[in-house]
Nucleic acid binder design. Structure first.
Length: 259
DNA sequence: ATGGTGGGGATCCCA
């Protein structure tokens, strides 16, 4: 089963590029972030006619996440547990059954800038909630994939110019430590596990020709429970689609699981 | 040189 995460930066502006990628890459499951649409405005028929089941957790203007799956989606849940007052649409999860049952969780972690400040505090609090819930997911001993736009540059080698990010919410010590705490629970970051070293990015800013200079950062990740790691066959970044017409500023990252 | 780009939706917020 091929499972991808892709921050599309607005479904209205991206449906053509998204469908072109789906038709080529043929992911079984695509976890989408920043759909920037309410549920009723999401063009689900575009994906249903390609054989995908569609579940969305939308919000007007900002945020919004979705799951596309060629397998039926069961036990769908919206919103990261731990704060009923949080109204931002940043989490959706569901179960898919292929050769094996897999729990897929799609997340859009808060950006957190400017830091320090209330937005950074919200990011850190959201990461604390994620850690609490990740413990429960790990305890289930199921095959679980927790994937999305983490808005975290985990290490210096995950940025072309790490020095310019040191005070940024994506690379500050507090946020990196919280990401590392997730890994230390026993989750494996799939791409890094299979591709050591620098020069692999999933985001390039629209400004200043960042993609042409390969001035990127790696902030989109797939975290696997041990039971999922047992099934891991491949992990890749589809970086070339950043150079196409009307691209998102992010590109898809995916894993192939023997499931 | 205190800008630059892009999406969404409203004349500004977010990234």
């Amino acid at each position: 089963m091929k499972i991808a995460t892709f921050n599309i930066n607005g479904i209205k502006a991206r449906h053509a590029a998204l469908c072109a990628w789906l038709d080529e890459a043929q992911p079984d499951v695509a976890l989408l972030q920043e759909i920037k649409s309410v549920d009723e405005g999401f063009p689900r028929e575009l994906f249903e006619e390609r054989g995908y089941n569609v579940e969305t957790h939308g919000q007007k203007g900002f945020n919004g996440v979705a799951i596309l799956s060629k397998f039926p989606l069961e036990d769908v849940s919206r919103g990261l547990p731990g704060d009923d007052s949080d109204e931002q649409a940043r989490w959706i999860e569901a179960s898919v059954v292929g050769k094996r049952a897999i729990r897929v969780c799609g997340l859009y972690l808060p950006n957190g800038n400017p830091a320090p400040g209330p937005k950074y505090d919200y990011k850190l609090a959201w990461m604390d909630r994620l850690e609490t819930y990740a413990k429960a997911l790990i305890s289930s001993e199921e095959v679980v994939v927790i994937a999305g736009d983490y808005n975290i540059i985990p290490q210096a080698e995950d940025a072309a110019r790490p020095e310019v990010w040191r005070q940024d919410a994506l690379h500050r010590l507090d946020s990196r430590e919280k990401f590392r705490r997730l890994l230390n629970l026993g989750l494996t970051e799939a791409f890094r596990a299979r591709h050591p070293g620098a020069g692999h990015y999933s985001f390039w800013d629209y400004q200043a020709g960042a993609y042409d200079k390969n001035d990127g950062i790696r902030i989109d990740h797939l975290l696997l429970t041990p039971q999922a790691v047992d099934l891991l066959e491949d992990a890749q970044i589809d970086h070339e689609i950043r150079g196409r017409e009307k691209p998102s500023d992010h590109v898809p990252v995916w894993v192939q699981l023997d499931a």
